[in-house]
Amino acid sequence: MTFVKHFERNTSGRDFAVGDIHGCFKLLRTDLDNMGFDPSRDRLFSVGDLVDRGPDSELALEWIDEPWFHAVRGNHEDMAIRYPSGNMDAANYAANGGAWNVGNPRHLQLAFSCAFDALPVAIEVETEGGLIGILHADCPFPTWRDFTVSLDDANMSNKMRKAVFEAALWSRERIQDEDVSGVPDLRALIVGHTPLKSPAVLGNVHYIDTGAVFRGGYFTFINLATLETVPAMQKKLEWEAA
């Protein structure tokens, strides 16, 4: 399998990315309807964390099967992948929102694990303005090309691959450091993982997880053609962790 999935430019409709879903698929459907999202022409890209904490996590498999919906794996998918093989402690998993899956029969746990393990770590989308990368947490290399080449390098050691995956799915280093250096060979990098009260931009890295699953949170969408958010961003660089 490839850990990087490439999409050509959408010439017939719109492309959006959405922040962490966390089992709020019914709310997401309502928001898409309100935006006039047309699944026959438009595409929706997810920054990962499809499941845990919210009420509709079991719908994740249905959404993954939709031809217009494309997700990278997040750290919560990582936990669901590891849990059936005994590489994730049940109590820790449940404490992080995975109780719905801990309670699933084993065949369903395996179905979610298999489906999430088939998701790419990174997505790249061609737009008129240039290439856009989509990840859950962060790009741990100086350039996007260095990162994507490393992901699919068959000669990479298991130890190194684990470190690269962990950074891509779990790291908050860039946002904690308020690092504005960006990723130079991308038009923009779109990520989630860190819930914020409003979306943030550091360099060309856009943080769009506005905590839809939490009280007071909401879904942020970003139009990949214009890099405008829905709802519109009020304060571009003023961000604060929720």
Rank of each mutant, 00 (worst) to 15 (best):
H76P: 00
S46N: 08
V213M: 05
N158S: 14
S171P: 13
V18S: 06
P184I: 02
G192A: 10
L50P: 02
E173C: 11
G103E: 10
K159I: 11
V125W: 01
V164N: 07
N101T: 02
D38F: 03
S181V: 10
I222R: 01
P184E: 05
R145C: 11
M160I: 10
V72P: 10
E128M: 13
L186C: 05
L27W: 09
L227R: 10
G48Q: 01
L135M: 12
R53C: 01
G86N: 07
R41T: 15
A242H: 14
H107I: 01
I222N: 02
A200Q: 09
S85F: 15
G103Y: 02
A225I: 07
G19T: 06
H107S: 12
R161D: 09
A95E: 09
I222L: 03
P39N: 04
A241L: 15
P142N: 09
G74N: 00
P142V: 04
H206D: 11
W239G: 04
L50I: 04
A95N: 06
Y83C: 00
L32K: 01
F165D: 13
D42V: 04
T220P: 01
D42N: 08
A111R: 14
E166F: 15
F25D: 06
L32N: 00
D179W: 09
A188P: 14
F7T: 02
P39D: 04
V4S: 07
R187P: 08
V213N: 05
D152P: 09
S157R: 07
A122G: 03
M233W: 13
L61Y: 09
S12V: 15
N92D: 12
V121R: 08
L227K: 10
R174K: 15
A115L: 06
K5T: 14
L202C: 12
D209G: 05
V102S: 09
E126S: 11
T11A: 12
P67M: 06
G103T: 05
D153Q: 05
R41L: 13
A188N: 10
K236Y: 14
I21G: 09
I222M: 01
E166A: 15
K197C: 12
R14E: 10
D78E: 14
N158K: 14
D56A: 05
L237P: 00
P184T: 07
R14S: 14
E126R: 11
E238H: 14
F37I: 00
G130W: 08
A17K: 07
Q109W: 04
W170Q: 09
A80D: 06
G19L: 08
T11H: 11
G23Q: 05
M160D: 15
P195F: 10
L59W: 13
G97Q: 03
V18A: 12
H136I: 01
D89W: 04
G211M: 03
L110N: 14
D117H: 13
A17C: 15
L59V: 00
L110C: 08
T2W: 11
V213C: 08
L44G: 03
H107R: 10
T226G: 11
L202S: 09
D42W: 06
G217I: 03
V51N: 00
N96D: 02
F116W: 00
V102Q: 10
D177H: 15
I21W: 02
F165P: 00
S198P: 04
R172D: 05
N10V: 03
D78W: 03
P67H: 10
F112W: 03
A90K: 13
A168G: 14
L50E: 02
M156C: 10
G129P: 05
Q109A: 05
G74D: 03
A168E: 01
C24I: 05
R14H: 15
M88Y: 14
